[in-house]
Computed example of a mutant assay.
Amino acid sequence: MTNTLEGSTALVTGATAGIGRAIALQLAARGADVVVHGRSIERGAEVVQEIADTGGRARFISADLGAADDVRRLAAQAGAVDILINNAGVYKFATTADSDDAFFDEHINLNLRAPYILMQQLAPGMAERGRGAVVNLSTIAAGTPARGAGIYGASKAGLELLTRVWADEFGRDGVRVNAVQAGPTETPGTAATPGLTDALGELATLGRAAAADEIANAVTFLASPAASYINGAIVQVTGGQAAIAP
């Protein structure tokens, strides 16, 4: 089974850095026309140029995923999309007592509502064409309690449930919907908290954090024809769960 994406258009949210950037580069390398989403026009132009320099095709759209109407505008400007990668998200830390409404809304709006709207706007078109692939980026915190990350984990747990709902809702029309549950990963975002990613990586059976490309590898596979019979799966890319010592 081939994994070429020639003739496909892919929208990758949060594609100007970290895992999203790695995904955009990989999809372009496999032949997809990539719609690079982000907030920074400068960083978006850099990713588009990097793809062009390697013979790929890409364009950039800036949008605020925290604003529902801007998410709908992103979908409209992206046009007919065959591959949707819901990668963009926010992860901040606070206890329940210290979380205010803005903190709550930011996580729910970016991590849950934005993917929901993009599915509303783009998946019916995939279904009409009889093909499509959606990959949602989740986290190990969706299934394992993490101190100070309750709303973050809950928003991603909700996205995992929606992944299975959408797999059922659109699967009969040839649209596959899966999620990648990522473990600790070295990105510019995680670098903002020095030592945290390395400490979490030590808890994995591999004893280290992932590189962004390692998470992107799983996403790109799920988006490709090589994963044609995988639907509704939550794929763990976490480095393995260590056993409880006796």
Rank of each mutant, 00 (worst) to 15 (best):
R57P: 00
A218L: 08
A211F: 12
T96R: 04
Q120W: 11
A68L: 00
Q26Y: 08
A146W: 12
D198G: 09
H37V: 02
L162S: 12
G18L: 00
G171Q: 09
L25I: 10
Q236M: 12
A167K: 04
E46Y: 08
A233D: 10
E46C: 08
T95Y: 04
A243K: 13
R21A: 13
R208Q: 12
A149R: 11
A29M: 05
Q241C: 01
A29E: 12
G239Y: 09
A216K: 01
A141N: 06
D70K: 06
I234H: 09
V175Y: 02
A127Q: 06
V180N: 09
I23V: 15
A209S: 05
A223W: 07
F93G: 15
A142W: 10
V135G: 10
I244H: 06
D33T: 03
S138K: 07
A32H: 03
E186Q: 01
E128A: 08
V12E: 08
A245H: 13
L222C: 06
Y91C: 07
L162C: 11
G171F: 09
A94E: 11
I234P: 13
L203A: 15
I230A: 09
G7E: 15
Y116T: 08
F170I: 09
L162I: 07
E42H: 13
A22E: 08
I23L: 13
Y229T: 15
S138P: 05
A45P: 07
M1R: 10
G158A: 04
T187E: 01
W166D: 05
L118Q: 08
L200T: 12
A191H: 15
R131V: 01
A216E: 02
M119F: 05
K92I: 04
T187D: 03
G38T: 00
A24T: 04
L110S: 13
L74M: 13
T205E: 13
T144Q: 12
G79Y: 04
A192T: 09
R73Q: 11
F93K: 15
Q26L: 14
T144K: 07
N3F: 10
G125S: 03
T238M: 04
L118N: 00
G44Y: 06
T220Y: 02
A24I: 04
A243G: 12
R39S: 03
A199W: 13
I117F: 02
